[in-house]
């Protein structure tokens, strides 16, 4: 066992999970049962895939973790905090600990690559001096140093997703949630993004990827949580196929 893995194993015994759901149920007002009695834990530094067909509850899970919605019942803890106890004005601080990337990148089209990333620091009131240091650093990690002054419309899909990734990571979140990050990308760019996610995870960030991409899940051999109609049906290490069996 490598020194880093050993350290990770040992830290699990003393550190609580970064994400913990206990018997979480979410029913919407229209009668849809999005999640049923879901219990799961994700440890610090893990790389986890969440898979499942449409309507399986993946998006509801992300919304719950961001505290955009509240569960009907059950307890959710993120970064050691019980979400139901968070006050309205603490939600923003809770979200600062979670970086999020989406399938459709969600970049501001009227701002350059640099400005899009700096925006993430600006909104949490990072000092300008720190911003000037951190933004070029993360853009360099993402291989975008040469494209700082370009607008999103001038970039390829893969590059736009890397900008979104830079924006999600520039504030050093504990958790990175990626919702179908390769959904709009060709295979080459998809693999590039996954390589970057793995690199981010290797540096200590907990990565949770919601995806339909069977090929990637199978190839990466990480922990796979499978949801079906709001119920956790499998939680195993291995590929998509393995998880289904």
């Amino acid at each position: 066992m490598a020194k880093y893995d050993l350290y990770r194993e040992l830290s699990r015994d003393i550190e609580p999970p970064v994400i913990s759901l206990e018997n979480v149920t979410k029913d919407y007002v229209d009668g849809l049962h999005a999640l049923k009695n879901l219990t799961m834990q994700i440890e610090k530094g893990e790389f986890v895939f969440i898979v499942g067909s449409s309507g399986s509850g993946k998006s509801t899970l992300i919304r719950l973790l961001l505290k955009e919605i509240n569960p009907t019942s059950g307890k959710i803890m993120v970064n050691g905090k019980t979400l139901s106890r968070l006050r309205e004005n603490s939600i923003c601080k809770h979200r600062r600990g979670i970086g999020v990337v989406f399938q459709d990148f969600r970049l501001l089209q009227d701002r350059t690559v640099y400005e899009n990333v700096a925006f993430a620091q600006r909104v949490i009131e990072t000092p300008v001096i720190k911003m000037r240091r951190e933004v070029p650093r993360i853009l360099s990690v993402m291989g975008l140093s040469e494209k700082m002054d370009r607008y999103p419309s001038e970039l390829s899909g893969g590059e736009q997703q890397r900008v979104a990734l830079a924006r999600a990571l520039v504030n050093n979140p504990v958790i990175l949630l990626a919702d179908e990050p390769t959904g709009n990308l060709d295979p080459k760019n998809s693999w590039e993004i996954m390589r970057l996610l793995e690199e981010v995870n290797r540096r200590g960030t907990t990565v949770v990827v919601v995806t339909h991409n069977r090929e990637i899940v199978d190839a990466m051999q990480k922990r796979v949580i499978t949801l079906n109609k709001g119920v956790l049906i499998s939680d195993k290490k291995g590929g998509y196929s393995n998880a289904k069996n």
């Binding site: 923003c92 979200r95 925006f119 949490i124």
Partner: peptide
């Protein structure tokens, strides 16, 4: 709307 939604997602305070 999109910008505000991103601000909320990133963790901007209501005041900001």
């Amino acid at each position: 709307k999109q910008e505000i939604s991103i601000m909320k997602l990133i963790g901007a305070s209501n005041y900001f």
